[in-house]
Nucleic acid binder design. Structure first.
Length: 665
DNA sequence: TACGGGAATATTTTT
DNA sequence: TATTCCCGTA
């Protein structure tokens, strides 16, 4: 169907600005949006900072702006919309498409990392990279670091040297926040400060290693992109094609990402960032809500728009949320209000034990179902993913279907990583970590032997692409011969992901059964992996997606065919970002769990826990229940009496009802 | 040098 | 509780 007012000929979208009168738009923007939203949506040129409180229609605003820009005649491909997750990106494009038409699906979108991935591959030559680099996920990075850590003999020191996880997070924080390693050690890990020089040594070796092996970790994706953007003569080809930059969840970006935003928008400074400083919950990844405060320094002519009308929650829920966040030490001034009144007061529920908390939730959910509240409209939120273990048992007993978000991911399970390691080698034979992982699967091969085989492969002494009979002499055991035979098959196949996966799994199966006692349970994951691989045409994109947008389901609820269409959501608060439900339960609101004991030592960390509680509370549209067990198992002391979370302990009768659950005899 | 068993240890959130 | 670390044995 031809659109009434589509402008077809625009000589140069960057200079000749198309325009329409307000009445000529297909969508009645002015009357569908509130004044603040409309101001943001109808903006075109210039820099905008949209401070959007929880539930104020942030996504809606972005979606409408995309539609309007397209209606104005701008090329969809010249609109870049960066979001926090790929799911969010997909959702926005779908909504915009539904609103207007499928031109909206053509905009440039994705996460910072996925955008960097595509850009770096496309402009690999200009960037100075090989376009088929492999992406290391966090676990892979840690493995590399562990290898280096072992080589440096750091385990033999008198004092315990930090573990791979810690090392990786220090290095990563340094890159993402632009602070030196010393500074980070001093501020976050003072007990490891004395090892600063070792950290530098590891960082150097790690960099060399990645360069040599054609590997990029998450941070590299951003760093290379930033550097590319800074080299204006080279990146002009990219930046001149971007007319509008939009960034969602700006409160969760870090310094490095802010620099990227600056670089992306350099062509004409048309940039809009949207965020809520009160919902900044990713500081462990280097995010700093002060990015929002600093934004006006980056773009001096920025216009600030504040969205304050909340469309999600009842006033009762909002009051409690406001109470929690009012005590925050620093935030952008804003006052959320809603027209939804007459809701029920939130409830704060003390249960004598953790199990009673679980049973309360199960009962309440069953009651809600009686009241015709769909399971899809209910969520249970928690600080850390293990908090739901007891509840999960009770839900299973009661036959309540649920999906859990956050926590252990499919991709992080050892057996899936094993299979991926084979495929990584197929993609990039220089990938030493994957070689290491694969070789160690074999009997009789430990770290030393693996090392020596890898050296021979890297030096070319062992040519893995030719048939093993030609390259392996008698000193190699049969299992190595078989491994090389398998890899030879991989290298000589036509590299369709599904076919490669099949070859690998055939070979891997006996090793897998030997390595894992519980291989029956794990087997399902491998079957899922086959299905996933069938959706890809190239190995490069399969591997990139596995690192950047991994499927989240592991064994827990794999069977696609018996997946219920109605299910309860269990989620970490981090994974619940941006979502909303009719009824929300927040569990384990106990000192030491929420706020986490890890946060006690730093005021900034405690402030972040507070924002986390705020995010959790503002997910609720209608009902909000915050529960805490009074006795909870503490690994150090056994059963201990616990204190309710500081975020809810001082709440007055007007803000929430307090219930006490006791065992009925 | 590989590898299994038992001890130690730290314990969150995710692209 | 689950992973990592350490050490003795083959």
């Amino acid at each position: 169907m031809p659109k009434k007012y589509r402008l077809t000929k625009i000589a140069d979208r960057n200079t000749a600005k198309p325009f329409l009168k307000e009445t000529q738009f297909e969508i009645d923007y002015q009357n569908t949006l509130n004044p603040a939203q409309y101001e943001a949506v109808s903006s075109t040129d210039g820099a905008y900072l949209v401070i959007a409180g929880a539930g104020t229609g942030k996504t809606r605003t972005l979606v409408y702006r995309v539609a309007r820009l397209i209606e104005l005649g701008y090329d969809p491909k010249s609109i870049l919309l960066l979001t926090f997750t790929r799911k969010a990106s997909r959702e926005m494009m779908n909504r915009a498409t539904a609103l207007l038409d499928n031109r909206c699906a053509k905009i440039n979108g994705g996460t910072f990392h996925s955008f960097a991935n595509l850009t770096l591959r496309r402009y690999a030559k200009l960037v100075g990279l090989d376009s088929n680099f492999t992406i290391l996920d966090q676990g892979d990075s840690e493995d590399v670091i562990n290898l280096i850590r072992a080589q440096l003999n750091l385990t033999k020191l008198d004092k315990r040297f930090p573990k791979k996880k810690t090392i990786n997070s220090v290095l990563s924080l340094s890159i993402n926040t632009g602070r030196t390693i010393e500074k980070i050690l001093e501020e976050e890990y003072p007990h490891f400060y004395e090892f600063a020089d070792k950290f530098y040594e590891i960082a150097k070796l790690y960099e060399e290693y990645k360069r040599r092996s054609g590997l990029l970790d998450y941070d590299d994706l951003l760093v290379y992109l930033r550097n590319f953007l800074n080299d204006k003569s080279k990146s002009y080809v990219l930046t001149s094609s971007i007319n509008f930059v939009m960034i969602d969840e700006f409160q969760d970006t870090n310094k490095l990402q802010a620099e990227i935003v600056y670089g992306l928008a350099q062509h004409n400074n048309n940039v809009m960032v949207v965020g809520d400083d009160s919902q900044s919950i990713y500081s462990f990844r280097g995010a700093n809500f002060k990015n929002i405060m600093n934004f006006p320094n980056l773009f001096p002519d920025v216009k600030i728009i504040t969205l304050e009308e909340n469309y999600r929650s009842t006033q009762e829920v909002l009051d409690l949320g406001n109470h929690i966040i009012d005590k925050a030490i620093e935030k952008y001034p804003k006052e959320l209000f809603t027209r939804k009144t007459g809701g029920e007061l939130p409830a704060i529920i003390a249960a004598t034990t953790e199990n009673m908390q679980s049973r309360f939730i199960v009962n309440r959910i069953l009651e809600l179902r009686e009241e015709n509240v769909s399971l899809n409209d209910i969520a249970v939120l928690f600080r850390s993913s293990y908090s739901s273990f007891d509840l999960e048992i009770e839900l299973n007993k009661a036959n309540i279907p649920y999906q859990k978000f956050g926590g252990m991911k499919f991709i992080e399970t050892a057996h899936v990583k094993d299979v991926l390691a084979f495929l990584r080698i197929a993609e990039n034979p220089k990938d030493v970590v994957s070689w290491y992982r694969v070789l160690l699967l074999h009997e009789g091969i430990g770290p030393k032997k693996a090392q020596s085989i890898i050296e021979k492969i890297m030096s070319g002494e062992l040519n893995i692409k030719s048939h093993p009979e030609k390259v392996l002499d008698k000193s190699y055991k049969e299992n190595i011969f078989n491994l090389f035979l398998c890899l030879h098959r991989v290298f000589t196949s036509n590299k369709v992901p599904a076919e490669l996966t099949e070859i690998v799994l055939n070979y891997y199966e006996p090793l897998f059964k030997k390595k894992y006692d519980d291989h029956n349970k794990r087997k399902k994951d491998l079957e899922i992996f086959i299905n996933i691989s069938e959706n890809y045409r190239s190995l490069t994109s399969l591997l990139a997606d596995m690192a950047l947008d991994p499927p989240r389901d592991s064994v827990a609820d794999v069977a696609e065919e018996d997946k219920e269409d109605e299910y309860l959501t269990l989620s970490t608060i981090h994974s619940a970002k941006g979502l909303e439900w009719h009824t929300v339960f927040i569990i384990h609101a106990v000192e030491g769990f929420f706020p986490s004991g890890m946060a006690y030592s730093k005021i900034e960390a405690l402030e972040e826990e507070r924002r986390l509680m705020y995010v959790a509370a503002t997910r609720a549209k209608q009902n909000l229940y915050i529960t805490y067990p009074m006795n909870i198992f503490d690994r150090h002391n056994g059963m201990t009496l616990s204190k309710p979370s500081r975020f809810i302990s001082d709440i007055s009768e007007e803000l929430a009802e307090e219930w006490l659950l006791e065992e009925d005899e």
